[in-house]
Amino acid sequence: MVSSRRSVADAPTLTGWFKSSYSGGSNGECLEVARGYATVPVRDSKATNGPALTFSPEGWTRFVTALKDGQLSA
């Protein structure tokens, strides 16, 4: 279940995880995002049994847009 405290301890119970098609095959520095929730759960692809952080949809969109626009280092 997604928490309102900006993290989810039981992230493995969430469904709909996906990794960007831009991620390399080595799984070195990849994030996974789960679809279909009121907040956006994000986890480390190397730690699928670990926790996830949650973001508001607006906050996640601003973050991704800033990365695409080169405002943040990837």
Rank of each mutant, 00 (worst) to 15 (best):
F55R: 00
S73C: 12
A11F: 02
P41T: 01
T48M: 12
T48V: 14
A52F: 02
S4L: 12
K46F: 11
K68T: 09
V8E: 02
T48N: 10
E32K: 03
D10I: 07
A66M: 04
A34S: 04
A38M: 08
S73G: 15
F55C: 00
E58I: 07
A11V: 04
S73T: 15
K19I: 14
N27L: 10
Y37M: 04
G36K: 03
A11L: 04
V42H: 01
P12D: 05
M1E: 08
S26V: 14
P51E: 07
L14A: 00
W60H: 06
A74E: 15
T13Y: 06
G16H: 06
F18N: 12
L14K: 00
L72T: 03
L72K: 05
K19A: 12
R62T: 09
L53G: 12
G28M: 04
E32Q: 13
T39W: 10
S7K: 08
L53I: 13
L31T: 13
G25T: 14
W17N: 05
S23P: 04
V8K: 03
V2K: 00
D10K: 08
S7C: 08
S45V: 05
N49T: 15
L67W: 08
F18H: 13
G36C: 02
V33C: 08
N49K: 15
T39G: 05
T15D: 09
D10M: 07
A52H: 00
F63V: 03
L31V: 15
P57M: 04
E32F: 02
G28I: 03
F63K: 03
T61Y: 08
S73H: 15
T13C: 08
P41R: 00
T61D: 13
G25H: 13
Y37P: 02
G16V: 05
S7A: 10
A74T: 15
A66E: 03
Y22H: 14
G70H: 03
L31S: 11
K68Y: 06
F18L: 11
V33F: 11
Q71M: 14
D69Q: 14
A47I: 12
P41E: 01
T54E: 00
D44S: 06
P12M: 06
P57R: 05
R6H: 14
A9Q: 09
A66V: 05
N27K: 07
F55G: 00
A34K: 02
P57L: 04
C30Y: 11
N27W: 07
T15N: 09
W17D: 04
R5G: 07
E58F: 07
P41C: 01
L53K: 12
G36R: 02
D10Y: 07
A34T: 01
K46E: 12
L67S: 09
T61W: 08
R43E: 02
P51F: 11
K68A: 13
N49V: 11
G70M: 03
T65Q: 11
A47F: 10
E32P: 02
S21F: 07
Y22V: 11
S3L: 00
L67T: 11
G70Q: 02
L67Y: 11
A34N: 01
A74V: 15
S23N: 05
D69T: 10
W60T: 07
N27M: 08
R5W: 10
Y37Q: 04
V2M: 02
